[in-house]
């Protein structure tokens, strides 16, 4: 039953091509989108538009890195919008009193702690992740209001606001941070035991248990990663807006989840890629920018986002359906030909 070497190589090549075709689809989509926009709208012929898109993509994108881990593990975190509001309020206050560096450290740590708390609800109280984080969505938002007494906070610290509004060598600082964290995220997922454990838990919790993985701990770490990356988003958004308010960014969790799912991470868990999330975030920012430039009504924008979401969510089943159809056709063709052995 041994296959010839040349046969194996040929199969490899085919597989690799098919694989890249599937997994880099989002990158091609982005390129096509840019080409079409470039051709149809004068604003898209200006380098600043693209730089701005990259900057804007960072804010959702950062949180999406964390969410990628979460969705790979088969869960999602709906509390991040509220958590972001709370962390942003703390950032805005902290920067005024403590300075930039200590605030950043504190907020990142708090994000980690909040995330871990979500993780504990999910693992130790065994509440399904979506419901647990739904409840936390209320609670973090309420805490944001209580903490701020319902008032918005401004910050005038230029060193701080420069993070999201400034550039180095023409490239937005926020985007530089985004790229660095994408690399870190990719390394965590692909090259560390933690990343393997996350993938394993997303594939099969039972098998993970048998492999000696501490499933609960892994999940708690995943949720703390979500919290930490959300904290990073909160810091950058506060810096971008020069302010924070307790009601900010409702629906942020949908944008983030949509970004991750559109990037090809399966909602059922088990597979995904930080790099694709990165591209997907840029694509989303491009779509938003384009909608503004084409003067799409802001309410219409929501509908479009919702439809993109639906599309992203149904991608798995659409792909499955086409695969089944292809398989059926192939088997019919095969039956017309003489049978060959299969291994």
């Amino acid at each position: 039953m041994q296959l010839g070497t040349s046969q194996v190589i040929q199969m490899n090549r085919k597989k690799i091509m098919r694989k890249s075709g599937r997994e880099l689809g989002i990158l091609y989509a982005l390129i096509v989108f840019w080409i079409v926009s470039f051709a149809t709208n004068v604003h898209f012929r200006n380098i600043n538009t693209y730089l701005n898109i990259l900057r804007e993509s960072s804010f959702v994108g950062l949180a999406a890195i964390g969410m990628t881990f979460c969705i790979i593990s088969g869960a999602f975190d709906l509390s991040i919008a509220s958590m972001l509001a709370l962390l942003a309020m703390i950032t805005a206050v902290g920067v005024e009193f403590l300075g930039v560096f200590p605030t950043v450290l504190i907020v990142l740590t708090l994000g980690m702690v909040f995330g871990a708390f979500n993780g504990i609800l999910v693992t130790k109280l065994k509440i399904p992740a979506f419901i647990a984080t739904l409840a936390m969505l209320f609670i973090y938002r309420a805490l944001a209001y209580i903490y701020s007494d319902g008032k918005y906070r401004q910050t005038m610290n230029v060193r701080f606001t420069n993070i999201s509004n400034g550039s180095v060598l023409g490239i937005p600082i926020a985007f530089v941070i985004f790229v660095i964290l994408v690399i870190v995220g990719t390394i965590i997922l692909r090259r560390t035991p933690l990343g393997r454990n996350i993938l394993a838990v997303g594939n099969s919790e039972k098998a993970s248990l048998i492999s000696g993985i501490n499933v609960d701990l892994t999940k708690i770490i995943i949720f703390s990663l979500v919290g930490t990356f959300t904290a990073a988003s909160a810091i950058l958004i506060t810096s971008r807006l020069w302010s924070a308010n307790p009601g900010m960014k409702p629906g942020f969790e949908f944008e983030v989840i949509a970004t991750v799912v559109l990037g090809g991470t399966s909602l059922a868990g088990g597979k995904g890629s930080v790099f694709n999330t990165f591209i997907s975030a840029i694509l989303f920012a491009s779509i938003n920018t384009a909608m503004n430039m084409f003067h799409v009504d802001s309410y219409m924008q929501r509908i479009i986002i919702g439809i993109i979401l639906l599309f992203a969510f149904s991608m798995t089943s659409i792909r499955e359906m086409t695969q089944t159809a292809v398989r059926m056709r192939r088997s019919r063709q095969q039956n017309d030909q003489p049978q060959e052995g299969n291994n």
Partner: peptide
């Protein structure tokens, strides 16, 4: 395990990743 599909394999991971998961550290 007796239930390969449910608790044996990690279906979406590669052969290599499936092999090494127990001793990844």
């Amino acid at each position: 395990t007796e239930d390969r599909k449910d608790s044996g394999i990690f279906p979406l991971m590669s052969v290599k990743e499936n092999l090494s998961i127990n001793i990844i550290k």
